[in-house]
Amino acid sequence: MLNKKPVKLLALPALLWMGALFVLPMLMIAVLSFLKRGTYGQVVYEFTLNNYIRIFDPLYGQIFWDTLVVAVLTTVFSILCGYPLAYYISRLEKSTQQIWLLLVMIPFWINFLVRSYAWVIILRSQGVINTFLQSLGIISEPLPLLYNSGSVLLGMVYTLMPFMVLPIYVSLEQMDRRKLEAAYDLGATPWKAFWHVTLPMTKTGVVTGSILVFVSSIGMFVVPDVMGGAKSALIGNVIQNQFLSARDWPFGSALSIVLMLLSMLLILLYFRATKASETKEGSA
């Protein structure tokens, strides 16, 4: 074992790096969230809980609520869009499967900003849809397709859906097909077999995908920034604003700590849920 020691030290640079540039900044934010803001936007080193109390202001309460609603709706729509797609891919032949997976993965890597912007071209008042409908004479005035909560939701589902497809696909792949065949043997209709066998067995995939989509959507500020109007700001936009225009870093930190705790809580619940389902399967 002696001879393995130097190899083990190879992790040290990465560890120090993450400590200095990830853990330390996170701790700084946590400290900052309990400090005061001075008149000129500077940080005053005095302890206060006011930043957290301010979050309960109805104004921010409303934005938190809106953010949660958008995140839940994004998750639901992503499941509706992603599950059938993942199911279809898992039934394809191996080689075709790889191509489809790559096709689903590629948009995920393309810049969020660019993908949201693509929808602006389509939806704006002189955009592709409005120009087309006007040229056909169906409408005389352009439809207000952009800069509302509907367009924000569309943009969110569009950018985050690939997060849903891949985990569901993985769980469909790992599923024991024999159980499905057994269900058919026992006379289950395809819908019943799907509802009672496939869906429960792919729960882990759906939960993983939902966590990924939900956590990404509550922190999102690009899509509402580009596709949303003045009223569709989400918590991400508020935090961005506190740091860059309002220069209230302590309050921005408090908001982001709450945001992070919210995502952590979800991830924790997720581990609980998957663990519970695992033990249930083990005893069955």
Partner: peptide
Amino acid sequence: PEIMMGLA
């Protein structure tokens, strides 16, 4: 959330 890493 990426936004947190950025501001941190």
